[in-house]
Design a protein around this nucleic acid. Structure first.
Length: 568
RNA sequence: GCCCCUGUAGUUUAGUGGAUAUAAUACGGGCCUGCGGAGCCUGUGACUCGGGUUCGAAUCCCGACAGGGGCACCA
């Protein structure tokens, strides 16, 4: 409908005023008025000479009187230059509900771009913490949102299974924990050894040499080291797969650092031959500012350690190429924390200098950190909040809540699982990417207000009504629509736009906010408008409306990776 | 010092140039035995400051101020 309104305005603006730009219709911002509004008269008046306000008045009135719509529009009027198009509520409501129930509402048209989204990127030999959780929720949701918006998407993960942190871990393990097997909680145990290594090195810097040696042996595929590495790495991988399955996250491709550094080193050699990379203090570097003619922006970029071992950036150069060459993608998105912004600018600029054409199609989707009240999480300080601990705490709280209600007799554990997972994911997604999340344990176990549980609850309530009676779409007839019905319907019609916005701007937070708005509108409707007790005609119409609402809630939640329980 | 991000009710937050700034939470006051009170209604309360662009600025530009992150062999 919005499209139709926009199209009609665009057409008349063209024929009457030769106005070629795009036209946007927005909802009339006043409570109780249902329809669309456009500010086009302001824009046309702005291009004309003479008195602005006279022109504005004349244009808006001429345009308004020339607009022609079908029976879904009740009237058109102008107010201070705004042109308001009021909807015929009953007819429009019927069409909206039918569209929602009979089509894949909000599903974008198939787009030609194939996009790779790389996210999660856990480090083996370390624990999965709430920082990874934000990344993983964000990436997983983005994949779903982009797919729903019509893109073809490859979900990729990069396992950081080699490098300095692994060498540090292996050193500590083989000198102090030789042949030790992990306990049941592998994740935490792995992390402990890493922390122990860091502490030992801080106290005795002379051990650094041993770690360095370990890294070299690892890269040279020393059989003894490789054997331990493979075994211990597997423990990490087991944990990751368990966690991904709990989160309901799936990847199409797994990349491993350990399979990238050799190719990375070759690329570095080419860069040396092209005189892009040069030697400095034994290491190979790229003086980006010098090459690009900038001043202190891109800094120097180290691409190979002085002992010949690879860095993260060495591998990233190879990975960028492998993505485009191996998967036929048009765009490559890296979901990585904002603290690595400079790193990716350096990687992409280097690729550009090296003549890699798709360098401009690489995009670092940065998001802000998850912090604690006291500041950053750090292994050294031992203040990391692990995913496993967070989950069990929230789960216990959800289970206590569930047990208070006799509506859920069976599947208490399953319901608690859905609710706790929903709470965690929603809290990770509802904020804008570039805002810091300060993790608060009290807030994490809260199921009131702007939370996943609130949205799920609305869905459960709506589902329960539908269990109790059936409706006939063809006989749907609204009498006078109540404010709450109109408001709910208006919110429902915004779904396609929210999908598109989330996808184009890479912001699942838009979908989270949207889904909350739907739940809010539904709860208001629920209290004001009886469904099952209403007169037959109204009951039928309201049942259809409730049904449409559950559809949207479920689809929206799904795009966030959140399940929609029917009872809770 | 340089680069990036963020400044909106006490706190958390929506808002990619349009009318009366969106919610949550906290605090105060209410909700009839009507589909489930993880809910609803109601009151109090906000655009960091100074310039500029524009018919119109929370939104764009410039400059302050405040917080966070990054800047050579970590990822």
């Amino acid at each position: 409908m919005k499209d139709l309104v926009e199209k009609e305005i665009r057409q008349k603006a063209q024929t009457l005023y030769n106005y070629m730009d795009d036209v946007e219709a927005k909802p009339i911002p006043f409570k109780g008025d249902w329809g669309f509004s456009t500010t086009i008269a302001f824009k046309i008046a702005g291009t004309q000479k003479g008195n602005f306000h006279n022109a504005l008045k004349e244009i808006s009135e001429t345009l308004a009187s020339n607009l022609e719509f079908g029976k879904e529009v009740s009237r058109v009027e102008t107010v201070n230059g705004y042109i308001n198009i009021y909807l015929n509520a009953n007819t429009y409501a019927q069409n909206v509900i039918k569209t929602i129930l009979n089509t894949q509402y909000g599903k974008g048209v198939t787009k030609k771009d194939k996009i790779m989204v790389e996210y999660s990127q856990p480090n083996t030999h370390k624990a999965f913490h709430i920082g990874h959780l934000r990344n993983t929720c964000l990436g997983a949701s983005l994949v779903d949102v982009l797919r729903y918006a019509g893109y073809s998407v490859v979900a990729a993960n990069l396992i950081n299974d080699t490098g300095a942190h692994v060498a540090k871990w292996l050193w500590c393990y083989s000198t102090y924990h030789k042949a030790e097997a992990p306990p049941e909680k592998k994740s935490e145990w792995l992390e402990h050894i890493y922390v122990e290594a860091t502490q030992k090195l801080a106290k005795n810097p002379e051990y650094e040499l041993q770690v360095k040696k370990m890294l070299q042996r690892l890269e040279q595929k020393d059989p003894e080291v490789t054997k331990i590495w493979e075994q211990t790495k597997q423990w990490s991988m087991d944990e990751f797969h368990r966690i991904y399955s709990e989160l309901g996250v799936q990847f199409d491709v797994y990349f491993y650092d350990s399979t990238l550094y050799e190719e990375g080193k070759e690329i570095v050699q080419e860069l040396v031959e092209k005189e892009i990379a040069e030697e400095s203090e034994g290491a190979l570097i790229i003086d980006l500012d010098h090459l690009l003619g900038t001043d202190d922006v891109y800094k120097t970029f180290v691409v190979l350690r002085s002992d010949g071992t690879a860095l993260y950036q060495t591998k990233d150069l190879a990975l960028a190429k492998r993505k485009f060459e191996g998967y036929g993608i048009d765009r490559s998105i890296y979901v990585v924390g904002s603290e690595q912004k400079l790193h990716f600018q350096q990687v992409f600029k280097t690729l550009e200098l090296a003549g890699f054409k798709q360098a401009k199609k690489c995009y670092h989707l940065s998001y802000e950190l998850v912090m604690l009240k006291g500041g950053k999480m750090s292994s050294r300080l031992g203040n990391i909040v692990f995913y496993d601990d967070l989950y069990s705490e929230v789960y216990e709280e959800a289970l206590r809540e569930v047990e208070k209600r006799d509506i859920v007799q069976e599947n208490k554990e399953e319901t608690a699982r859905m609710v706790s997972m929903g709470a965690i994911k929603f809290s990770m997604l509802r904020k804008d990417n570039n805002k810091v999340i300060v993790f608060d344990p009290k807030e994490a176990v809260n199921f009131e207000g702007q939370t996943g549980a609130y949205v799920q609850y609305a869905h459960a309530r709506a589902s329960r009504i539908l269990e109790k009676d059936a409706y006939d779409l063809n006989a749907m007839e609204f009498e006078e629509l109540t404010v709450q019905e109109r408001n709910l319907l208006e919110v429902l019609t915004k779904f396609p736009d929210s999908v598109e916005q989330s996808a184009e701007r890479y912001k699942p937070s838009i979908m989270a906010t949207y889904v909350f708005d739907v739940a809010k509108a539904f709860n208001e409707f629920y209290h004001a408008c009886p469904v099952l007790q209403a007169e037959p005609a109204t009951k039928n119409a309201r049942l259809a409306l409730v049904s449409a609402t559950t559809r949207i809630l479920k689809s929206g939640l799904q795009l966030l990776g959140i399940e929609a329980p029917e009872r809770m």
